[in-house]
Design a protein around this nucleic acid. Structure first.
Length: 274
DNA sequence: TGAGATGTTCACAT
DNA sequence: TATGTGAACATCTC
């Protein structure tokens, strides 16, 4: 679930409690979570202070004061929460950061897909391949029209699959892919090289605007997403396509249908999305 | 009861 | 090279 807006919401929530706090101890309950050596991870992280939390696409980057960075990807169900000192691990807690101020930061992951890796700060693009090849952040200044349109022209993929590919644009997942296509009145099946300049311009605008709007709304809580303070997002109430199969399209009353594109459930309105 | 769906990325196949 | 498929895993629904 966590796509860019949800990860950004987690980042902002965690900032308040985790930044500038010293990590007193670390409990690793599910070592497979790590893409780094466990002993070394503990050795380097314990005693350090989180000086800043950044985000790149769907990755969280915990900048430590020892020139190392914890790169964290939540994948499907990874979740951070801030807990009181006496709180016991939850059923799916995989790691616990014990802070010097007495609080604990839990990392929970029901499906165990999430990963963490310790890298040299500034070197994440080299040490984490998918960060190295990742497309621009979906903001006005980074996702330029020239880049976007040229790249669409170079592929024949169904546009839905293209949007999910992080190498094209960073941070879009299944929910927001369906949403921006609905907003742009483009069928998820349309090959990207058949998208006109005008449509590309519109699609790009909708990506930038919709993701910013989702961040403002604290992300979408579709199955289980909650922010670091345990709050749900509100964006799920503002979705037009995702999760609304069988319901009428808000634009023209046509029935939204669910198909599979790139192995993913895809909801759209065949009447207005051409 | 058990098959299918859930969503992200990677490894591998074509 | 570009694109497509299945696996990693746990839980819920029908």
């Amino acid at each position: 679930m966590p796509e860019l807006p949800e990860v950004e919401t987690v980042r902002r929530g965690l900032k308040k409690y985790f930044e500038n706090e010293k990590i007193k101890d670390l409990k690793i309950i599910y070592p497979k979570l790590l893409d780094s050596d466990r002993t070394e991870f503990i050795e380097k992280v314990v005693g350090s202070t989180v000086s800043r939390i950044d985000r790149r696409g769907k990755f969280l980057l915990f900048r430590l004061d020892n020139n190392l960075t914890i790169v964290s990807h939540l994948r499907m169900e990874g979740r951070y929460s801030v807990e009181a000192a006496q709180e016991a691990p939850h059923k799916h807690t995989e790691m616990i950061f014990e802070l010097e101020n007495g609080k604990q930061v839990f990392y929970d992951d029901t499906r165990k897909f999430g990963k963490m890796k310790l890298v040299k700060s500034g070197n994440e693009a080299v040490e984490v391949k998918s960060i190295g090849s990742m497309g621009p952040e979906p903001v006005e200044s980074d996702l330029t029209f020239d880049y976007f349109y040229n790249r669409l022209q170079k592929s024949k993929k169904a546009v839905k699959a293209w949007l999910l590919d992080q190498n094209n644009v960073a941070g879009i997942g299944n929910i927001y892919a369906d949403e921006v296509l609905w907003l742009s009145e483009i069928s998820p099946l349309r090959p990207t090289n058949e998208i006109s300049e005008e449509e590309a311009d519109n699609l790009r605008e909708n990506i930038i605007r919709e993701l910013a709007f989702a961040i403002e709304n604290g992300g979408s809580t579709v199955h289980s997403f909650i922010d670091a303070s345990g709050h749900t997002g509100h964006m799920q109430d503002k979705l037009h396509a995702y999760g609304r199969a069988g319901q009428p399209c808000e634009r023209d009353g046509g029935e939204l249908i669910k198909i599979r594109v790139a192995q993913r459930g895809t909801t759209y309105c065949p009447k207005c999305q051409k």
